[in-house]
Amino acid sequence: MKIIVLLKRVPDTEAKILINSKGSGINEEGVKFIINTYDEYAIEEGLKLKETVGGDSTVTVVCMGVEESTEIIRTALAMGVDKGIHICDAALEKATPAVIATVLAKAIEDNGFDIIFCGKQGIDYDMAQTQAFLAEKLDIPQVNVIAEFKISEDNKKVFLLRRIEGADEKVEADLPVIISCAKGLNEPRYASLPGIMKAKKKEIKKLTLADLDSSGASEEKKSTIINWLPLPKSGECKIIEGEEPGEKAVELARLLREEAKVL
């Protein structure tokens, strides 16, 4: 079985995000990048599926992103993924979900696939669109934000559980299918040291748009981000110091009248 996992490089959850001066993106200085946290659940589910199915199944991660994305691909390889495909092209710098999906679809088709796992959304832009575009491009069903995953005996069907408001939803789908994953589905594994060592020797296939015969893909965008704006400064908090509650109340009234001008 050919198992595909989509991967995205995103700023660390703890990183301080600042809009750059041009408003064209974030200031990357001092920002650490990690595997999109939801993608880790996708990797884990892919690896588990490979263990269940056995045989000559392979897990391949496909990542579209800047040069440095190799680092996160290696991390996935260290977790046990067999192979990496890294699509990297200057023309894709500002790619929107539709464009990304077009490019990913091409790479995935070239590689061959039976099932695709991805994170439910990128924790950077929170768009959650790529998998939908991709399902369309590949003309396969998609099931989002699953809580349980099972595969049929004959490996042709998946049984999924979705946790929705107040109920569980059982879904069945035929392969090939694209499935998005979130926290709670599994516990992503920690890379073992032999895994890390082996990952150094595993193949990462580097592809450009030309390699994928999709030089025009970047023009297929359905939307354009015009500008990023910093959030308006939230009001400052003031703590009123004082010994007596009465004294503090007087001060509060004064501030509300004179500074906040609400009274």
Partner: peptide, 26 residues
Amino acid sequence: ASFPPEVQPVFKNMEINYNPWSFGYA
């Protein structure tokens, strides 16, 4: 790669942000 589950985020924090808690290294 097997240890008490609560240890994994500790290792990850140390790897990514160089501290055992989830604080950004910056």
